[in-house]
C-alpha cells in the first residue's frame, strides 16, 4: 500500500470512530427524559424554557452576586423574595439526585458545583 492510501485509510477509520455517537443515536433515538418536579410547587423562579436553557448562567450570576457583591436575596418574577442560594433555594424544592444529577448524566456533562456544595438531603 502506498503511503497515501495508508494515511487515507487511517483518517477514514478515525472519522468513523469519532462519529460513532451520531449514527448510534440516529439508529436508536434516545428517549426523552422526564424529570420529577417538586410536589406542591407550580412555578420555578423563571419560565421553564429559560430555566432549562440558562440555569447554568443564572447560577453563575447568582454566585458572583453572593460571593463578590454580598447580595443575598432577590425578587423573583412572581414577586416573591428569595435567597440567592443553590443549596437553600434550588435544592429547597428540587431533589439533587433525581433532578440535577439525572439530567446532567443524560446530557453527559459534569458541572463541578457539587465538589463543594452539598446536597442537604444527603449530607454524607
Amino acid at each position: 500500500m502506498s503511503e497515501r492510501a495508508i494515511i487515507a485509510t487511517g483518517i477514514a477509520l478515525f472519522l468513523a470512530a469519532a462519529c460513532f455517537p451520531f449514527y448510534r443515536n440516529a439508529a436508536a433515538p434516545p428517549r426523552p427524559l422526564v424529570l420529577p418536579l417538586p410536589a406542591g410547587e407550580r412555578e420555578c423562579i423563571a419560565p421553564v424554557a429559560y430555566m432549562r436553557a440558562s440555569h447554568g448562567d443564572l447560577l453563575l450570576a447568582w454566585r458572583d452576586r453572593v460571593v463578590r457583591s454580598g447580595e443575598r436575596v432577590f425578587t423573583a418574577p412572581d414577586g416573591r423574595v428569595r435567597e440567592l442560594s443553590l443549596t437553600r433555594t434550588c435544592l429547597g424544592c428540587h431533589e439533587k439526585a433525581a433532578f440535577c444529577d439525572r439530567c446532567h448524566d443524560y446530557v453527559a456533562i459534569g458541572p463541578d458545583c457539587w465538589n463543594c456544595h452539598v446536597d442537604p438531603r444527603r449530607p454524607q
Binding site: T87, C116, V118, P120, P123
Partner: peptide
Amino acid sequence: RPFLRTIDPAYPTRT
C-alpha cells in the same frame, strides 16, 4: 471531604 466527620449542608466544603 474525607477529613470531615459531618458536613453541614448549609455551607459548602472546599476542593
